[in-house]
Amino acid sequence: MKLSGAVASTEGLPIYYDLYTPDSFDKGDDLPVILFVHGFKGFKDWGAFPEACKQLSSGGFAVLAMNFSLNGVGESMTEFDQLDLFARETFSQDLDDIGSVVTALKEDSIELPEDCSLETENIGILGHSRGGHTATTAAAEYSEIKCLVTWSAVADYKERWSSNPLMVADWEEGGVTEIKNGRTGQMMPLKKIVFEDILENADRLVAVKRVEELSSPALFIHSRGDEGVSYKEAEKLYGHCSSEYKELQLMPDSGHTFDTSHPYDGGDLPSTFQKVLKNTGQWFKNHLQ
Rank of each mutant, 00 (worst) to 15 (best):
Q93T: 12
Q93S: 12
Q93V: 08
D94N: 13
L95T: 05
L95F: 10
D96E: 14
D97L: 12
G99W: 09
S100D: 11
V101G: 06
V101Q: 04
V101T: 02
V102E: 04
V102D: 07
V102W: 02
A104Q: 02
L105W: 04
L105Y: 06
E107S: 14
E107Q: 14
E107A: 14
D108T: 08
S109Y: 00
I110A: 12
E111A: 14
E111P: 02
E111I: 12
L112G: 06
L112A: 07
L112F: 09
P113A: 11
E114L: 13
E114A: 14
E114V: 12
E114D: 14
D115V: 00
C116M: 11
C116S: 07
C116P: 03
S117T: 14
E119T: 00
E119A: 15
E119G: 09
T120Q: 09
T120K: 10
E121Y: 04
N122Y: 06
N122R: 14
G124N: 05
I125K: 07
H128Y: 07
S129L: 08
R130G: 02
R130C: 05
R130N: 12
R130E: 01
G132K: 06
G132L: 08
G132A: 10
H133R: 08
T134H: 00
A135W: 03
T137R: 11
T137V: 15
A138H: 05
A138N: 06
A138L: 09
A139T: 11
A140R: 02
A140V: 04
A140P: 07
A140G: 15
E141N: 12
Y142R: 06
Y142I: 05
Y142H: 06
S143Y: 01
S143D: 15
E144P: 09
I145H: 03
I145T: 02
K146T: 09
K146Y: 03
K146H: 01
K146R: 14
C147F: 00
L148G: 03
L148K: 01
V149M: 03
V149S: 04
T150G: 08
W151A: 08
W151E: 05
